[in-house]
Design a protein around this nucleic acid. Structure first.
Lengths: 228, 228
DNA sequence: ACCTGAACACCGTTCAAGT
DNA sequence: ACCTGAACACCGTTCAAGT
């Protein structure tokens, strides 16, 4: 037996299989996501990566859903609120771009971060930072929450599009743009035809930046009116 | 044999099994979604409802993804652009609420409508309507597309939250509000604590309506500045 | 306390064969 | 043209048993 089963000392490569932990499982799941996409995540694929039986995972995560929540939560925790300057526009913009950075750091995991409703309080820190910016600019709590919600909705919507769009929605590749523009022009819908060149084109970085500018403008103007 | 297997004439109830069609499959899928949720959709569960073998579906849909696309596309097609009055604010608001109506008509299917990137041109009609409103208010094509994109992102973000939040995010039920408010107050984050009463509360209809008001305000002010 | 063998009730999809 | 039996390579999860 000793001859057949390898001794612990010279077992499989550095599988880090020393001890199965919740965080090791979470990291393995993220590795699978990055490598093969969110659809490839299964209790079996994750456990395979850890050199362990799938059922062992259940000692550390309640079920697959819990595992995905853990991943989402951890990624959101990577968001470090930039230090605030006190300048409304600059601070909101910085927060928005930091949110995007975190989301796009693992594009295949983005849908988790953007759509999971996290039940724990993790990732409440960025909310706090955003509220702080808004109230320091003169918003009362009720207004701050309302503005925050529209802001977050817009960011989530933009990032979700960016991440799930792939080349479908509009592209930065000239050939794709041409193809799509032709399709749009053949739709027979007058406004779509008129706007086709702009609908077909989608520059991810630029769209996000200008979208954030618009949304931040909006917040600024709302606070300026009420407060000045 | 004839004695055991029922004759075609008196087979199962009116399964509408007469002819398997793409649209019948699509409708069955929607029935499963409405009844048991999006996660319950499988080629097998859908085919079961139709009294047919799962593999038969492949003669009418390419694969499961194609089936879900068909459902999303069809639901989006239910959106009938309200007749436009020419008044920017009223028309945008009406479009937004019609989009919400369609989305929430089948809440369990909402994520399909909101996140699927439809490759066909179905559901381009509402885009056309929105662009029409914007250009009639004086936007040039480029600006119209940019405003449209922010607008859609905000709507998608808000609806996604509304649909996937359930009671997690904030509630209209007083007990839930109290529980959540207490949790938020225990977070130790100063702004979150200060805003807790408003963060804990979430009135779906009201939030959407006021969110739309804000976003529409934003579009109006942007067009007013440029155009007047 | 942690891991797994056996097991259950599922999946999506292909392909050759039937009508 | 349309449907299905047999089959393949998967799923998530439970539970009793092992260390």
């Amino acid at each position: 037996m000793n001859a057949v089963t390898p001794t612990p000392r010279r077992g499989r490569p550095p599988k880090a299989q020393a001890q199965l932990t919740r965080s090791a499982i979470r990291e393995a799941a993220l590795t699978v996501i990055d490598r093969d996409g969110i659809a490839a995540v299964s209790m079996r694929s994750v456990s395979r990566l850890l050199g362990v039986d799938a059922k062992s995972l259940y000692h550390h995560v309640a079920d697959k859903d819990d595992l995905l929540d853990a991943v989402a939560e951890h990624l959101l925790g990577e968001l470090t609120a930039p230090e605030l300057t006190g300048e409304l526009r600059a601070d909101l913009t910085a927060l928005a771009h930091e949110f995007r950075r975190v989301t796009l750091a693992h594009p295949e995991a983005a849908s988790l971060v953007l759509t999971r409703q996290l039940s724990t309080l993790a990732g409440l820190a960025p909310i706090d930072a955003a509220l702080s910016v808004l109230t320091h600019a003169g918003a009362d709590p009720e207004q701050a929450v309302r503005l925050l919600r529209v802001l977050v909705a817009a960011l989530v919507g933009m990032l979700l599009r960016e991440v799930s769009a792939g080349p479908t929605f509009g592209s930065s590749d000239p050939t794709d743009i041409a193809v799509r523009q032709t399709a749009l022009e053949g739709s027979g819908l007058p406004e779509v035809v008129a706007c086709a060149p702009f609908l077909a084109r989608f520059d991810q970085d630029g769209e996000f930046a200008s979208g954030v500018d618009l949304v931040v403008d909006f917040v600024v103007s709302h606070l300026a009116v009420t407060h000045a």
